[in-house]
Design a protein around this nucleic acid. Structure first.
Lengths: 143, 143
DNA sequence: GCTGGACCCTGTTGTCGCTACAGGGTCAAG
DNA sequence: CTTGACCCTGTAGCGACAACAGGGTCCAGC
């Protein structure tokens, strides 16, 4: 199996596969006489594993840690739990800040809903007022 | 006003201010005899505007567009509305995908909650199963 | 035999929004 | 006269790729 077929099968770009190899996430495959990379089912499985973890938005460093657990099945799995918990905490923190951001944008959008000149635009006024340090819908006094 | 005072006042790192100047977001200030940058109230206002927009997670390219509107107050503000709408759409799309991700991680976490060997870890099994293309809690059949 | 196009290779550079140096200059206080 | 805070330019790094440049390889069709 060559790199193109592997990429199509797993749904990963060819350049990304080579990148994972450079980064040590995927072991270097055998080479054909012409220098082409030749992959086996083990590579396919490992790449699919990486892709799945990436779909869960895990950074490559954490995937590396997980791959180490796959290789050592006798280790305690407390660390795996902790890894997922950390990941969940990060996602939730990011979620909260994005929800706040959504509210700010909704407030800003409500200030302008008809067609007029930029000079009278509530959105622009609000942003400029913020620049003056005045109270604004985006950054109310309570923080 | 020198760069350090400007940075402290607005709450922007000194290196970031120089970066904004390089990127053309902030006009090059006058220089003192010793070469130090010398800022006036106009710079302060503009930098605060940028900072506020960045707090709304706008990419620098969009802030550039907004700054162009501030400079031309007679332009129609439809584009400003559209810009905020686009921003809101991006935030909401990201929000939806992060909520899905949170659910996937919760499902994954539920598979393992006691101390045992990695070989028996439900999380690891699930991730490996995903690598085999089998149905999994993270990527259920309906997509 | 020869050409076109799909595929493969290595290596470098670009993306975004900073951040962190390295290696120097300037200035006021002690 | 030295210390330390501040300033300068320029370059490299981050994460996770994407997008080339500039080549080699292979197979089908004419």
């Amino acid at each position: 199996m060559r790199i193109g077929e592997l990429g199509r099968t797993v749904g990963v770009d060819v350049e990304t596969i080579r990148y994972y190899e450079r980064e040590g996430l995927l072991p270097p495959p055998a080479r054909a006489a012409n220098g082409y990379r030749t992959y086996g089912p083990g590579h396919l499985e490992r790449l699919a594993f990486i892709r799945h973890c990436r779909a869960l938005d895990m950074p490559l460093a954490e995937i590396r840690r997980l791959l180490a657990f796959v290789a050592r099945p006798d280790a305690a799995c407390d660390d795996i739990d902790r890894l997922i918990d950390e990941q969940l905490a990060r996602v939730r923190a990011r979620l909260a800040s994005m929800q706040a951001l959504e509210q700010q944008l909704i407030g800003l959008r409500a200030l302008c809903d008809s067609s007029h000149r930029a000079a009278d635009c509530g959105i622009l006024h609000e942003l400029v007022a913020a620049a003056h340090g005045e109270a604004c819908a985006c950054h109310p006094p309570q923080g």
